[in-house]
Amino acid sequence: MTSTSTLSPPFSALPIDKSGPPLNAWGLHGPEDEKGRLNLITPKCVKRGTDTITEGVVVNLNLPLSFNPVHASRAPMERKIKCSGHSNDDILTFNTQCSTQWDGLRHYAYQNWPEEGKFTFYGGMDIKEASNPNIKKYGVHHYAEKPITSRAHLLDIPLYLSTHNLPPIEAFSNAHPIPLSILQACAAEYNVDIQPGDILLVRTGFTEAIEAKSPEEREGLKKREKNESCGVEASEELFAWHWDEGIAAVASDCPSYETWPVAPNKLSCHQVFLAGWGLPIGELFDLRELSKRCQKYKRWTFFFTSMGLYVEGGIATPPNAQAIF
């Protein structure tokens, strides 16, 4: 059943800014808004999340920062120890998207909008402004000032597919995206009741697939002509479902929430969610232990907390995320 948020008009009302790109929600929360869909997370939503805590069990949702990134252009973390003779300091150098991450609102733009060669971010920010390190607007510090913390749900797609003897997901291919019908069927089977301000996690099994690869095989994957990966199907019906359900943030265990790359000239979740709605996208979350706990407790709803790095104007951030049962 679809729940339309009292803070949002229906999907059919999009775009909000009629002069802006397709399906945008620019200006919905005021002209100075920088929090996007995180505005849906009210104190009531947080309380609804804490009400799910019955076991007192905490589950880590982060891969190590030393995880070998799957994106060829993102270098792995480098670590040095500075010894002063009586104490030690860590010095870390890393791409904020080398491991588990939240994409910020300055990460991905509407492609070739309003014209070829133009790239437009949330609220109309252009690529020059979004790339300026001296500008703080739309940075991931908002994920720290207003932590991504609420009730959350896991849609365990590999579990659902195996239960129904359906073909498994191909981790390193975009040929068979997860359709909305499977997401909805999975939610119904595991009694997931999404309410406005909730967070949605989608497990694909990508983490297990990449962890099973040798270092040489991982390097080979990076050198493919197309760096394909699994994910949900970016479609207008999927966008409508996420909007009308009032989902405040999404995350998955694959490199991109949607299959990547998307078809040419087709809107991606990255364009609509990040640049259109200000909806955070989490990638490469470690959902393995979470899946086990959900099966053990026979519930796929829990309290979710995430406090990103307080980097003013930051592009992305490790989530420091956990689920609490």
Rank of each mutant, 00 (worst) to 15 (best):
Q97W: 00
I157Q: 01
P43D: 12
N112L: 03
K136R: 14
P158D: 15
P69R: 07
T317A: 05
I324E: 13
F303P: 04
D103M: 05
G205T: 09
N68A: 09
P280N: 11
A171N: 06
L38K: 03
K44V: 10
H153N: 10
P179M: 08
L238H: 03
R37C: 12
P319C: 01
P255F: 01
D193A: 08
N95S: 15
G220K: 14
T2A: 08
P319R: 07
K213I: 00
G276V: 03
P177W: 09
P280Y: 05
A251V: 12
Y160L: 05
N191H: 10
F273C: 13
E34C: 10
Y110V: 02
C83H: 15
K18M: 07
Y143R: 01
K292R: 14
R79F: 03
E170A: 14
N39T: 03
D90P: 00
L65K: 07
E258M: 01
G308A: 14
F285N: 04
N134R: 13
D253K: 08
A209R: 03
C98P: 02
T6G: 02
V59L: 13
F206I: 08
E245R: 12
A175G: 11
K223P: 06
A321V: 08
N95M: 12
P215G: 03
K222F: 10
M1D: 07
I247A: 13
M307T: 12
L284G: 01
A13P: 01
E129R: 13
L14R: 06
P264K: 12
G278D: 08
M77W: 02
K18T: 12
N39I: 05
E228G: 04
W260A: 07
S3W: 06
K118C: 09
A13M: 13
K136Y: 15
G124V: 10
R299I: 07
L65N: 11
P43E: 08
I127A: 13
E170W: 00
S8W: 04
I194Y: 04
K292E: 15
L166A: 15
P76G: 09
F303M: 10
V192P: 02
P158L: 07
A209F: 00
E245G: 10
A209C: 07
K146T: 14
A75G: 02
L279Q: 15
I178H: 07
I81A: 03
S12Y: 04
N24Y: 08
E32Y: 08
W260I: 02
P177A: 08
E236H: 12
G36E: 11
K82H: 13
R203I: 05
W243Q: 13
K296P: 00
N174G: 02
S173Q: 11
L159K: 14
F285W: 15
A109H: 01
D51R: 11
G313F: 09
G104Y: 00
G314M: 04
E189G: 00
K137S: 13
I135R: 15
A185V: 03
N68H: 10
L63V: 02
E116D: 14
E216I: 05
T4Y: 12
L63D: 00
E217K: 04
E116T: 11
N174V: 05
T259W: 00
V202N: 05
Q271S: 14
N165A: 14
A316Q: 09
N62H: 08
I315R: 10
S214R: 04
T50I: 12
R288G: 09
K146W: 15
L290P: 06
